[in-house]
Nucleic acid binder design. Sequence first.
RNA 1: CGGGGUGUGGCUCAGGUGGUAGAGCGCCACGUUAGGGACGUGGAGGCCGCAAGUUCAAGUCUUGUCACUCCGACCA
Length: 478
Amino acid sequence: MADKKMVEAITSMEEDFAQWYTDVVKKADLCDYTSVKGCMVFKPAGYAIWELIQKQMDARFKETGVENVYLPMFIPESLLEKEKDHVEGFAPEVAWVTQGGLQPLTEKMCVRPTSETLFCDFYKNEVHSYRDLPKVYNQWCSVVRWEKETRPFLRSREFLWQEGHTIHATAEEAEARTIQMLDVYADFCEQVLAMPVVKGRKTDKEKFAGAEATYTIEALMHDGKALQSGTSHNFGDGFAKAFDIQYTDKDNTLKYPHQTSWGTTTRLIGAIIMVHGDNSGLKLPPLVAPTQVMIIPIRQNADGVLDKAYAIRSELIEKGFRVKVDDSDKSPGWKFAECEMRGVPIRIEIGPKDIENGTAIIARRDNGEKFECAIKDLAAKVEELIPTIQKDMLDAARARRDSQTFEAKTWEEFKKTFDEKSGFVKAMWCGNRECEDKIKEELAVTSRCMPFKQEHISDTCVCCGKPAAKMVYWGRAY
RNA sequence: CGGGGUGUGGCUCAGGUGGUAGAGCGCCACGUUAGGGACGUGGAGGCCGCAAGUUCAAGUCUUGUCACUCCGACCA
């Protein structure tokens, strides 16, 4: 009976992964649709996850010397058009403002799809001497891209993100910063989101509009599809030249500075859902769980039960955990299910019998384990469990990712793997765009990245058979 | 932007051949319950996505439009 109701609530991921995702988003109460297509309400449960991501990522940024700024949301058309590749990449998906109040504007402005051009316009006035460099800025904001197809967290027309924009005296320094921020992202994903990622470089076909090099972290979702989870770009001096940004160096000559940008978005929430979730709902890594421990009183009207629950809550909050007591008048079974759908890492059940025995029940969301614990030891147990769960979730996600990562030496093997399986396929590539195009056309597969950790799978390109240049992670992507 | 599907109380849906709207769940009140989505009684809630058209009459037929959703293309 209970099982039947659960099945009705959340479609199983084996049956229909897309529907499962939508069901989890709804049942975990993360967001809601609005009257504007592709724009969503972040409900408290969803926004709180974003706040935890922001807080912890921002702290990591600042350890590397990043300073936060805020630039306008409007970009005049003339500014957007200054860098040719950039405008070509973004023009098809920008939203335009053509009227101010009752008057038409003399120049239309787009709502930022990304802020490279605004930062360039700003740096032009800010940077004159080698003494002004580097600038290592970041902003937390939202951007707008008029997507045709939208999905909660994965692709919306307005989304929240952070965009770092830095400017340096030398190419070496810019490249070092580009890689440094990619490392920050990868480390954040693994340590905070318990999500393993592959670090690597994008092929020219997949790189950012206007970039010299794009680096990416690629994660694998439960259904074997890849999700680009963060990118870091090295622009070289291309933007500086387009925007005429120059500085006087120590040797008293004018030089073009080198720039980078790097971003992660609320898509990370989608990644958390699809990396960790199961058929009971969301599974949150403790470090980004708005509620880490939910205490569920059993027979809460019985003498002393609620008081005990509140006392445990106080003790755990004192220790620094995010804790709630579900003292609503729902039945315990309902509260258990609700707790699971919302992904709360630890559940504590306490009722009259427990209180009599001086114990409580602890249930782990990540692996379903349920065991008894003395009430006096609860705080210590939770303190031990939070990092354990965090680590176990990363291990489990890594094991699953590895089990969905394959190798292919020949075209037949490559095609067969994608026909029969879903995941990353490591295969060699000659470096030619034609092979990349052919692979995409015939298998609907794209190059995810050329990983930093190169392996030698074979001597020849998996597509054309010519000598191989790089090992590439291939996959179907979100 | 191309192809498919769906729009009827908050949610899931029922409403042959046109005749003025229903159920379950949820919600509210009261009571009984309580260790894996409890139960009883009573109650509130709908210009049937929107706009034209056909008709004495449209949830139902026609056209358009918008939204959601799935599959592609594009993208974080």
